[in-house]
């Protein structure tokens, strides 16, 4: 097992144990989705129509808000300095951390989607479409959020700064995620078109996210 695998396992273990907060994201997701019918009224037809949008917004907020501590804890206990000094390229180390974060925070959101879809009166195709788009799209959210997390630790500010900086950058993912889900349910465009663009966005953020986050850490902490 190389250093990257070790880092991945370490991050997953840390977030799964007591105090790690791995399941906080999915709990937040559940609560946000539960709040929305209270605001809109229990109109099942309306909820069915906007269901994919609600699930996507909930997942977007959940995966971004959970990113706050991604580098902060490592910075506090000094392990971030070790990662910076190590021989493993920082971009890959940061990517491993993002992967661990996605497995413990993003993946549960995808798994929870069918349950929440039932609350929103979505049928089987719709639930499948939303879960599939979330499975492809949440990595992009994590990777874009990675930049915000790196900036937050460099600036030693947490809280609302991260979503303020990062949310505008996630607009394309949101647009194509919801469009692909809706395309599978009602049309009129074929599912493939927005879905492939969503895949492209994820692949792009796979490059831009770790590069920018590593640059931010290098520039800010040296």
């Amino acid at each position: 097992m190389g250093p990257l695998g070790a880092l991945l396992l370490r991050d997953m273990r840390l977030s799964l144990r007591v105090g790690g907060g791995a399941l906080m994201g999915v709990l937040f997701f559940l609560i946000v989705v539960t709040m929305i019918p209270f605001a809109l009224g229990p109109d099942l037809a309306l909820l069915q129509r906007i269901g994919p949008a609600i699930l996507w917004l909930g997942a977007l907020l959940a995966s971004l808000l959970a990113l706050d501590r991604l580098f902060a804890a490592d910075h506090e206990d000094g392990s971030l300095d070790l990662i910076l000094m190590g021989r493993t390229p920082l971009e890959l180390a940061v990517l491993a951390k993002a992967l661990a974060h996605w497995i413990t925070t993003g993946l549960p959101l995808v798994v929870a989607t069918p349950v929440l879809g039932l609350f929103l009166n979505l049928d089987l195709t719709a639930v499948g479409a939303v879960a599939l788009t979330l499975a492809v799209g949440t990595p992009a959210l994590t990777l874009i959020g990675l930049i915000g997390a790196a900036l937050a630790v460099v600036l030693r500010r947490g809280g609302l700064l991260l979503p303020v900086l990062v949310l505008p950058l996630t607009i394309p993912v949101l647009i194509f995620g919801v469009s692909a889900s809706n395309a599978a349910i009602v049309g009129p465009v074929p599912f493939g078109t927005p879905f492939l663009v969503l895949c492209a966005l994820t692949l792009m953020s796979l490059v831009v996210g770790p590069l920018a986050a590593a640059a931010a850490l290098r520039q800010g902490l040296d």
């Binding site: 900036l151 505008p168 831009v208 920018a212």
Partner: peptide, 10 residues
């Protein structure tokens, strides 16, 4: 430096 990275990502 942080703003520069954010600007380029933007």
């Amino acid at each position: 430096r942080a703003a520069a990275i954010l600007t380029l990502v933007g």
